[in-house]
Every structure is written in structure tokens, then in C-alpha cells.
Nucleic acid binder design. Sequence first.
DNA 1: GGCACACTGGAAACCGCTTTCCGACGGGGG
DNA 2: CCCCCGTCGGAAAGCGGTTTCCAGTGTGCC
Lengths: 331, 331
Amino acid sequence: MVTLEDVAKQAGVSLATASRVLNGSTRQVGATLRARVEQAAVELGYRANIAAQTLARGASNVIGIVVHDLTDPYFAALADGAMRAAATQGLLVMVGTTHRDPEQEIAYVATLSAQRVRAVLLVGSRVADPRVTGRLREELAKYCAGGGRAACVGQDLLAVDTVAPANREGAAKLARALAGLGHRRFAVLAGPPHLVTAADRCAGFAGALEELGLPAPQIVPGPFDRDGGHEAARRVAPDVTCVFAVNDVMAVGALAAYREAGVRVPEDVSVAGFDDIVTLRDHVPALTTVRLPLKDMGARALELALGEADGPVVEQVDGEVVLRESVRRLG
Amino acid sequence: MVTLEDVAKQAGVSLATASRVLNGSTRQVGATLRARVEQAAVELGYRANIAAQTLARGASNVIGIVVHDLTDPYFAALADGAMRAAATQGLLVMVGTTHRDPEQEIAYVATLSAQRVRAVLLVGSRVADPRVTGRLREELAKYCAGGGRAACVGQDLLAVDTVAPANREGAAKLARALAGLGHRRFAVLAGPPHLVTAADRCAGFAGALEELGLPAPQIVPGPFDRDGGHEAARRVAPDVTCVFAVNDVMAVGALAAYREAGVRVPEDVSVAGFDDIVTLRDHVPALTTVRLPLKDMGARALELALGEADGPVVEQVDGEVVLRESVRRLG
DNA sequence: GGCACACTGGAAACCGCTTTCCGACGGGGG
DNA sequence: CCCCCGTCGGAAAGCGGTTTCCAGTGTGCC
């Protein structure tokens, strides 16, 4: 590999001058030398060693994003939003996937921190386990103490800037909308109880029903993915008229289960989800859901991480109820 | 940030010893000193500076993956496969998205190469423009000349290890299967002509029809995404009984267009896609398609890149025709 | 004409870690 | 008892850049 020294030698200038010409510096270099250096660099095919630059500058131009699962369109959208925002700032992105293992998440923060990345974004639900959360928070604190910046999309549990989707209130709004359509007997495909996002949505939904004086919904726990929804749907009580799956992917699983069972949606049962995943917009029947501006949230998280924070900023993001065919008016 | 020197000082040993203890080395260190160093590291919260390690070792433990669009489940699946494979080797992943801009792809290779990443994976179709391809190949060649490893998922046009899906043959098999169901008059939602993947699938399909002595299909070009399929479907001639969209996402767009237009699938027209995207498996009607083992392909590409290559290896990957409800038997 | 000053180029220190090379030490074999 | 070899610890030379500090030059002003 050709180094800066090679270029300097070839151009007949010092290392300092070559550096100033090739890798942005505040200092000016005379036109003649500048030209000589640039030509030498091109001739030799010079490419700066970024590891060396990072070391010398004490700062890198990469950010880290940690998500649970890239093949889940929810995370893909969030990550994409953040990556686009990063690209506009000339930042590179390292992506880590935890496959929903909190230990992995901690490990990634450690590794990214060792990489001296400029910022790390933690995308996805926290878990209810305070010990795991505590360790993650410690790891983040250490990273931030060393000059790192961090932000999180999810719950405000890590003492860093946070983009917090209004899971409770979104689910509550959905509950009120569904109740407004005449539904009385609900089930919630609740996901895993320890996932805060799932728990919040479930609680928000149930809470709103209670406020309305309606009977408590049947709570069906299960995995947070398509198969979880599929499986959970089969355990829903027969008198339920409306099922709320705590995310769209689960809702799609539930719809598939109903289809297989010959249960018509929305004629026999109504189904709603949460997130408004774009990839699913052509699903039949179209899914009633709570829309979250995922791409914007990802981008916003990056902004927060990069911005000057006095203390941790927490930004609430509202969800908007979108009524579609998978739900029908009752009676 | 605490450095190795701090640790060494605290432990009362030399830099060399501390390094040998903390960051894998072939050399042994006595038990006493080893313990002292480890304790000091923990007390101080030492974390190696990876930029410095990379510089000193001349090799990093990160790989680069360049995809067109992470929110497209096709790329998400491929990337996920590669990332899982990377994780088993203890490698970190930098992901770049080009949003289908070939210039971006070249730029990413340059940047990743400057990062001295261990390997770069180029995931996605090549474009037909020989000048762009040429420049990309040059960039890759330079990177490889400097000790880098590279692999590509797509067409064998870059003189690097390649995982090549059998686009032509897969489409041809699909054509034969559809003809076997009695269809005679086809349309191909062909995607952009300059995208080699799209062009190959289109050509494979048309070629098979010709071999069967059937009339040439109507070719409808357009963008390679959902909206492209949606829009193209509306330009299909009325006598066509079967539409082949060159990827699943486009096929879903086409199905949506038909639904909006009140055209029934498969009663009025049959629709097939390509890729067998997992996220779409619950689509109604279920999509006839050509299955590609996307995750495996991603993982395999990483293996190839990391493996010892005498010359560039090209690995063909077969597609398997999967007949589902979106297609019906004719007559 | 002389002086302060702004500006440009180069030498060298430094970023944090790895690794070679060297010296010291202890043990086993002759 | 001595020598040779194998081990282990430390000093120091990189890795490839950035940046500080200094020196030399040309300019504007008095």
C-alpha cells in the first residue's frame, strides 16, 4: 500500500505538506506544491489509512448502529433512516445485530466503543430486566465518559438521548378507536412480557379499555415476531371480536393463522397491529395499525446523538391510528 | 480514555507485558504479572483502542458490505446472512447503502478500502454500463492488490469471487412451468434494462418461451421496486394471461394494481415473481416465484471472500420454482 | 530602509498499540 | 561445575498519519 510518505517523497515535499494538501487541514499550501502533491497522489494511487487518521486525530468518522434484527422491516426502516442521515454528514456506519440477545447488545457497545466510533445508536426495545439494563447503561456511561455520544430509539432507560415512540398512548388511541367501532371483547397478542415495547403497548391498550369501562382484554403472550402472532392467534377466546397484535409483523402472522383456520377477517374477527410497516402495505386485508414515522425516528436519533446535549434529551414520537380493512364496525 | 500505558504503569510492568496479557499474543506471561495486569485493566476500565491496534497490526477485524437498499427485504436477507457468518468469525460489519447509485458503490469501495477492512462484499445487481463497471473493477483491483479480499453477490463481472444466482435459468424454469399450466400469452414486468439481474431474468424467461415455440412476451420496463411493478402492471396488454415480474417486490406491486383495478388474480390473470422473499410469504394471493436461498448466499459470499482464492471463484446458485395461488392452470 | 507581521514549508513529537530484539534468569545435560 | 537452551520481561522501533513549533520569506507600514 502506498503511504503518505511515498507521496511526499515523490512530490519532493515534506510529510507535513503532503498531509495538509491531501487530508483537509486549516493551513494553506502554495499552488505549486499543492499541484505536485496532488499529482503524485494520483499517480501513486494514494489512499489515506483511516486507522492511522483515526488514531492521530483521536476521532473517527464512523457511527455504530445496533439493532435486533435487520430482516425485520421495523428495524430495517429505522436503520435506513439513521444511515441516510449519517450519509449526509459523511459518516460511515457499522451495523450490529443482536438477534434479541441483550448480552450481545452490551458486547456491541463495548466493541463499538473500543472502535472509538463517533456515536452509537441503540435501536429497539429495552428489556425489563434491571440488571441487564444496568450493565448496558454502565457500558454506555463509560463510552460517553470517553467522549462518545449515544442515543437510543425505544424507552428512556439508558440515560442517553432517546427517541421514544408513544407506545402506551398510541395503543390507547387505537383501543379507543376500536371501541368506537363497537368492539367490546378484545384480545391482545402481547408479545414477550419482558420486552418493554410490547408491555407498554399492551398496558396502554388495556388501560384505555378500562377507562372506557370495558372488560379487560384477553392477554396472550408469545414471541414478538410473525410466528409468535400466528401461534398466539390460535389461543384467542371465541367470543373476542377484535384482536390487537402489538406489532404489525405479529398481526400478519395472526391474519395468516385465521386464513388457515377459515376465519374471515374482518367479518368474523377484526385485527389490528402497530408500526405501519411499509413493506406490508399491500397485505390483504389491509392492516389497521398505529403509524410510526420510522425513518424519521432513525434520522432523529442520529441527530440527537450528534447534537450538543446538555443533559439527555427525550423526544416523544406520536403514533397515528390508521383504520383499514382488517377491522370492521360492529353491530 | 485509559490507555495501555496507564494499565502497565498501574500494574508496574512494561507496555509490552501489558499488551501481551490483554490483547492476544503468542507469547506467555508469568502468572503473577498476568494477574496484576488483568486486575489493573479491570480497575481502570481499560479498553483497547482498535484504531491503534489496526494500525499496528496492519489488519482490521471489520468487513464491509455494500447493498443497494436495506429496506428492500431482498438485500436485508442477503446482508443478514453475511452478517451472521461474520459474527461467527468475530468480525464487525460496516454496511453501506448505495440507493442504487453505482457511483456510490464505487465510492464505498474506496472508503472501505481506506478503512483497510478485511473484506468487502458487493451485494446486488451490476449495471450494464461497462464504464461504471470498469471503474468499480479497477477500484476493487486496487483494493485487492493492497491485500484486501472481495466478493460479490450478483453477476460475475468484477473479477472477484462471486455468488451468482441463476437468474436466466431460474426464469427459464419458471417460464416452462407456467407454459406447462397452459399459458401462452405472457408479459414480463422487466425492470430497468440496464440492471443486469433484471435483464437476465427477462431474457431467460423470453428465451424459454421461444424455445417452446410460444409467442414473444410483452416486455414492460420500469423501476425495480414495488411502485415499478404497480405502474408496469397497468400497461400490460389485455390478452395476456400471465405476468412475470422480475422480482417479488414488483410482483406485489402488480398484485396491488390489479386489486385496485378490480382484476382478479389468478382468475383473470396469473402473476409470478422471483426471489421468494420471506416477508411476503403471507401475501394474498400467495406468490408463485423462484426461490433463492438468500441468507445462504450472503453467508457463502463472506466465506468466499475470506477463503483462499487461487483465482476468482464463481459459484452458481440455483433457483427453485415455487408454484402458489397467484398462478392458475389455464383451460 | 527597517521592522513587525502574516504566511508558507519542514522537522519532529505524538496518537496507542504490536512486535522484534536483547538481556536476565533458571534448569538440565555433559 | 559449566554451558546451552528455553522462558519471560522490557526497551524501543515501527504502523501511517496529524499537528505543533520553528524558521525563512515576502509584504505593508512608518
